[in-house]
Amino acid sequence: MAAEVVEDSRLSTKYELWSDMPDGYREGVARVAAFQSLAEVVGVLPFAEWMDRVPDYSRKQMYIAKIQDEVGHGHIMARVAEDLGIPREKILSDFVEGRTKLLNIFHYGFDSWEEIGIAALLMNSSAIVQFQSLDKGTYLPYVRALKKIEKEEGFHYHHALDLSHQVMVEGTKEQRQLVQSGFETWFPRLLGYFGPPDSAVIKDNPLYKWGIKVDSNDDIRQRWMSKIIPVVKSLGVHVDETVAKFNEETGRWDFMEVDWVGIKNLINEGGPSYQGHVDSIKHSLSSNDKYRRVALSAGKLNAA
């Protein structure tokens, strides 16, 4: 019998909802699922804002489909979190009341349609690469949810790619410049999305030890750059060497410095879109209350 690699044993014990879990595991994965559920739902808002300004009908159809998908993802993740003890109402009220924070990328809106294509390309590709790592993890309901979500994110990625390509090929010089500046604005934000450098400390992270977190932030960030930089360049976007460059000697990407302190402050204090999102969610919690009550009380179980 060949010796088993140590890494495999970290990921080889899988858990269902009703399995015996190590102390802290249940709460750890609950927080991860709840956080993602919130991200899926709030992540809709910067896009929803532009729904009435999508330039043509077929793009609008694709755009609305993407937004609907994301809300569905929020539902799927909320189910995972609910089973672990965090009700979906709490996920939203914790956000509205400032107890949970928002990913850095959702603190910003979009200034142009051209920016949306390239921003969505960077965001969707990041999400896909990250989920492809997390879906090797140990908590199976979360893994199943991720597999469903990943597949739909693939459609969003292709929509964003097609949109960006259209602007670069058919657009005016000014439009192409908006794509370029969109890349330069959003690339640093997405570098931050993967989380601070953690290779040195990952082995002590309980989420890593339990196999909920599968790879380090650094490794996923590298994988993302290997995927997205060639794509962005093929669109005709200029990627300066100081922004990202593959280092043949180390076999890894060298990239611009990320302002981690700035990102932390942004997350704690709230960026330009933050208050608007809080207000939107607060409003929908109260205005949709009657629909929630009907949905959960209609039906045979509650027939008087």
């Binding site: 539902h75 189910r79 199943r144 949905a295 179980l301």
Partner: peptide, 9 residues
């Protein structure tokens, strides 16, 4: 199996 939903019937 793909996941679950919450519903009253």
């Amino acid at each position: 199996l793909v996941g679950s939903v919450r519903a009253s019937d």
